[in-house]
Nucleic acid binder design. Structure first.
Lengths: 182, 182
DNA sequence: CTAACTCCGAACAAAATGTTTGTTAAAATA
DNA sequence: TATTTTAACAAACATTTTGTTCGGAGTTAG
């Protein structure tokens, strides 16, 4: 890919991220992003059709990076997955989030956590679906999945809200306790 | 209060609600609301400073109505509360939501559920805090509260998403099962 | 009845949106 | 190296949205 494209794209992402630290997504204008990123108006629209698409692409970028470790390709020998329990997976995931905090401070700790978490849940479902054993069977399956994903996302939000003070191990432990996994 | 004010306010709420059924909050303009409500531009801004405040006032209006039954004043004799368990409270709450569906279809089933749920959770916390017994003690108290509120909100979202097919009793039962209450 | 209040439409400036145009510089290709 | 493609850019543009101001007309309440 053209080096210039990367540079522009990067500049826009960074500017957007900086703005997200200070303002809510809704109240950020394309004009502000352009000014902050110091790119031409035309350039922005050449890269991103709308502000929403910018957000979406930013999120998928993060998640594809984070979840690439968590979701090994289908071709991988299956027992390698079985080796890692759900608790290890979740802990590992939280470590990735904590590490990425610096890069994605705007999305994580800004006024737009909810948007971030909406995309987060999509990827989270993939993980939980790989652990059918931890799913309760006395309620409908999709209800159970939604409950696990939703409550974990809420847990992460709680964690982020307070500045990620606790270790990932502690959070996973608390979560799995309340989820009735232990 | 002036009857004209009520009429205008009502017209704006209804128009906003109709628009929320079709479009996401972000993509609704004040102009559209004005046109749909058939009120003057000046009138809108006389009532609501911004679009966000309009949403907030609409939500608080709903919740104050719904939760007025659920949160009796402090002066009420306490044992009347103790009579009703958490399960009955939640079921009762879900019935209110289901009844109000017609009026608040836009908020409930539109593209802006997340916004609705954010305000919802604030009121929900009030309820759960009245039932400290159902809160786990092997994790921090605020973690437990956040977990209960968050997972219930996610449950409600799931329920709404699918058109509220199940009865409130069923939903409460499923939820309390997974919350480890039974 | 009167005084205060509310609505309305029109007009307004300021800001944001999304597109077009021609030019310049960088990258890919041959 | 020379050529061609590609991207960035500033400037200008029409359009839409925002939020405010004005005077006039109708409604409400004391």
């Amino acid at each position: 890919m053209d080096r210039r494209q990367q540079k522009s794209r990067e500049a826009i992402f960074n500017a957007f991220n900086r703005l997200l630290e200070k303002k809510h997504f809704n109240n950020i204008t394309v004009q502000e992003i352009i000014d902050e990123a110091n790119v031409g108006r035309t350039t922005f629209y050449a890269h991103f059709e709308t502000k929403d698409i910018l957000l979406k692409e930013m999120c998928t970028g993060i998640f594809e990076h984070i979840f690439s470790h968590e979701l090994p390709s289908e071709s991988t020998h299956d027992f390698s997955e079985a080796e890692h329990g759900l608790d290890e997976k979740l802990t590992h995931l939280l470590y990735h989030l904590k590490d990425n905090k610096g890069n994605m401070l705007g999305l994580f700790s800004g006024y737009s956590r909810d948007l971030f978490l909406r995309y987060f849940k999509e990827y989270l479902s993939e993980i939980f679906m790989r652990y059918p054993d931890c799913m309760r069977t006395d309620v409908p399956a999709d209800f159970a999945l939604n409950y696990m994903v939703g409550s974990f996302a809420e847990t992460v939000k709680w964690w982020i809200n307070r500045g990620m003070k606790e270790t990932p191990e502690i959070i996973t432990d608390h979560y799995l306790k309340l989820a009735g996994y232990n």
